[in-house]
């Protein structure tokens, strides 16, 4: 390869990173956004409640900001439009599984279009405190087909990095008990009639969710992070992976 070609290529690379890269959807996508260029990066942290997920999001945000990056965080249930309605729907129990799945998808779509995509367009690093994978896992363990769920989220954009904080169920309940002294109804899958008591239900439910996440590791490229370790060990692990990715993509 002659030096001139290399030089031209180098210039093109700079140009491309200025404009951002083409938006990538999981499936059929959103036709009216297909020309959108994303300058930022989308990093997803998944994991059950008690896995230290929210703390890690906070630590990563602080570190990336101190490195000089613009950072935006986003979670589930935070959409301005639908957020409150999601909670209301949960309290109004007799709602079918497909209805609930679509409702959460609507909530997610609102956040995606009004928060995540604009932030990425502006060049921000977006750290998502859970993404479509939690929503998919919850639906699938409740009997909704994987294919339908996957097709439904065909409008979601493909993240740049996806981490799953993997904690064994016994570590998990100890952490939850130390913090709240009680198990959450939904995080225990208590709506599913899995067991007579909340504790057994929690164990069965979390095992099923974990199995679904293991399946998704292969399908969607989730990287499992051993979160049985201390918070700072987990953070070092995550931070190393994120920094090396950002360095490699020259952000």
């Amino acid at each position: 390869m002659n030096p001139l070609t290399n030089k031209v290529r180098g210039l093109m690379d700079i140009k491309r990173s200025k404009d951002g890269s083409q938006i990538r959807f999981y499936g059929d996508g959103i036709p009216y956004l297909k020309r959108t260029k994303l300058k930022g990066k989308l990093i997803v942290i998944e994991g059950p409640d008690g896995s230290g997920r929210s703390s890690q999001v906070e630590l990563i945000k602080n570190k990336l900001e101190s490195d000089g990056h613009a950072v935006t965080t986003t979670g589930l249930k935070r959409s301005e439009l639908i957020g409150a309605g999601v909670l209301a729907a949960k309290q109004k129990l007799p709602v079918g599984q497909k209805t609930l799945a679509l409702f959460y998808a609507a909530d997610f779509a609102d956040r995606l279009e009004h928060h995540i995509i604009p932030s990425l367009e502006a060049g921000s690093i977006v750290i998502a405190d859970r993404y479509i994978y939690t929503l998919m896992a919850r639906s699938v363990v409740r009997g909704i087909s994987r294919k339908w769920t996957n097709d439904l989220f065909g409008f979601a954009i493909v993240p740049d990095q996806i981490f799953y904080l993997d904690v064994s169920p016994d570590k998990l309940f100890h952490r939850i008990f130390q913090k709240y002294s009680a198990l959450d109804y939904y995080e225990a899958g208590a709506d599913m009639g899995l067991a007579d008591d909340l504790f057994d239900s929690f164990i069965i439910y979390q095992r099923r969710i974990a199995r679904e996440f293991r399946r998704m590791e292969k399908l969607y490229g989730l990287v499992a992070i051993d979160a049985n370790r201390t918070m700072s060990e987990v953070n070092n692990d995550l931070q190393t992976r994120i920094s090396s990715y950002l360095n490699a993509s020259k952000i």
Binding site: I30, E80, P94, G96, K98, L102, A105, A106, H114, F155
Partner: peptide, 22 residues
């Protein structure tokens, strides 16, 4: 006027699913 075509579509699907399942 906050609804995008995608959220509009998903909300109507939610509504439909509720009628359908119920």
């Amino acid at each position: 006027a906050l609804l995008t075509p995608t959220t509009f579509s998903l909300l109507h699907a939610t509504d439909f699913a509720d009628r359908y399942e119920r």
